[in-house]
Computed example of a mutant assay.
Amino acid sequence: MLSNSLVLGASTGFNSGDMIYQLIAFIILLLLLKKFAWGPLMGIMKEREEHIANEIESAEQSRTEAKKLLEEQRNLLKEARNDAQGLIESAKKQGDVQREEIIAAARAESERIKQSAKVEIEQQKEQAVAAIREQVASLSVLIASKVIEKELSAEDQEKLINEYIQEAGEER
């Protein structure tokens, strides 16, 4: 039985050789993992970290640039509104000036027509006076012929001519 117990004791006992072997295999495995897996994995993680940091920095720059562009667009829009307001004011002023010019031209034209009408009236008046004079002259001839028929005295002729002239003057 002793031999049985030795076999049982040997299988249940602490075997330091196996343990050292497993420890060495574990350390070799760790070194291999560190060299072939852990290093590249950490490199990939570092690259990923740098990539994310770059993306965050790029996004921040884009946001800052977008904010700057937005501010520029607001300023340009404000300038455009001011320019438009200036153009509207200028157009109003120009419209007022043109209106005043049109009114002044209309008044000048009205004055010219009025003066032309006065000149025409004066011409018509002179023509009427000339016509009256012609009538007076023809009446004078008629009076003269009647005087010759009646043989009036010089005083009567003068009186008759003055009456006709006075009548012609009143008609005027």
Rank of each mutant, 00 (worst) to 15 (best):
L2M: 14
S3Y: 03
S5M: 14
L6T: 12
L6E: 14
M19W: 15
I20K: 11
I20A: 09
Q22W: 03
L23W: 08
F26A: 13
F26H: 15
I27Y: 04
I28R: 08
L30P: 00
L30T: 05
L32M: 08
L33N: 07
A37T: 06
G39R: 10
P40W: 05
L41R: 02
M42E: 10
M42G: 06
M45D: 11
M45L: 08
E47S: 07
E50G: 09
I52R: 11
I56F: 01
E57M: 05
S58F: 07
Q61A: 05
R63H: 09
T64H: 09
T64G: 03
T64M: 12
T64Q: 12
E65Y: 05
A66I: 02
A66C: 00
A66W: 07
A66F: 04
K67I: 03
K68V: 00
K68Q: 07
K68I: 04
E72Y: 07
Q73G: 09
L76A: 04
L76C: 05
L77E: 15
E79A: 00
E79S: 00
R81I: 06
D83V: 09
A84L: 03
Q85V: 04
G86T: 14
G86Y: 05
G86A: 12
G86F: 03
L87H: 11
L87T: 12
I88R: 10
E89V: 08
A91C: 02
K92Y: 06
G95W: 05
D96S: 02
R99N: 14
I103L: 08
I103C: 04
A104R: 10
A105I: 08
A108D: 12
E109G: 02
S110L: 13
S110H: 08
S110Q: 10
S110V: 10
R112K: 03
R112N: 04
K114W: 06
S116V: 04
A117I: 06
E120V: 01
E120T: 09
E122T: 12
E122R: 07
K125E: 04
K125R: 10
Q127L: 02
A128P: 07
V129G: 03
A130P: 05
A130S: 07
R133C: 02
E134P: 02
Q135A: 10
V136Q: 09
A137I: 14
A137E: 15
S138C: 07
V141T: 15
L142H: 14
I143L: 01
I143W: 00
A144C: 01
A144S: 11
A144D: 13
A144T: 09
K146V: 12
V147N: 12
I148R: 14
E149N: 05
E151W: 03
A154I: 12
D156E: 09
E158V: 11
E158S: 08
L160M: 10
I161Y: 07
Y164G: 10
I165G: 01
Q166M: 04
G169V: 15
G169Y: 14
E171H: 13
E171C: 09
E171V: 12
E171D: 15
